[in-house]
Design a protein around this nucleic acid. Structure first.
Lengths: 108, 108
DNA sequence: TAGTGGTACCCGGTAGTACGAGGTACCAAC
DNA sequence: GTTGGTACCTCGTACTACCGGGTACCACTA
């Protein structure tokens, strides 16, 4: 599936939040996870900008730890504000996607 | 539901295409339709920019007709390219929304 | 020990989209 | 003749994902 970038706007950040909520993880691994989920064209640069935004907005806690296979990793965890943000993301998603699905069903 | 604007990026144009596919209609009515569908904060300026884009991209046919209750209306119909674009929009939507739903389900 | 490949992070600039805030104009009714 | 609803448009802004590039750690090997 090519060129999903416009459709991912506004949802990719929520996906990253959800992945972090699932387990403490780091940028490179998040990119891989998104690619495995089917968002094959999402690149690391995009993920890092999202992570920096999350940090700037005070939604995550960051811990830098050394790795044995490369440079140090920055591990991310959701704080209370991040969990709230994730909850509102899912409620927005529920709201929008249900209405779009309804429009789709109506048209056939 | 407030501030859905980021999440609507990339999907609003598809919604407009679907509405036009349903029946020949015009900008002001499309805005009302979107508001009724639950996208209460979508304003006419946004819809008109989308319609001009559709026209510029050769996806619609336009017919100006006078109204009895106000200024003339520009009625839009999908052409063949527009129907193809609508189909690819729905397939992208299916792809993206199913994967996001899967991510959501996995996380609980 | 120079080179390669995988891991891991970041930055500056660009494109695309929805929105905000205005403006113009037609028509009916009071 | 002013108000309110209808109907269109335009310019600038904010936000987000992407692109292309750079830096650096580590293991392996020619």
């Amino acid at each position: 599936m090519e060129d999903l970038t416009e459709m991912l706007k506004g949802t990719l950040e929520g996906c990253v939040l959800e992945i972090i909520a699932g387990e403490e993880t780091y940028g490179y691994a998040i990119t891989r996870r998104l690619n495995d989920l089917g968002f094959t064209d999402v690149i690391d640069g995009t993920v890092y900008t999202i992570l920096l935004r999350l940090e700037r907005n005070g939604l995550v806690q960051v811990a830098k730890r050394r790795s044995e296979v490369g440079p140090p990793r920055k591990f991310y965890t959701l704080n209370e504000a991040g969990r709230r943000e994730l909850a509102t993301f899912w409620s927005k998603w529920e709201y929008v996607s249900s209405r779009i699905d309804r429009l789709k069903e109506a048209g056939r």
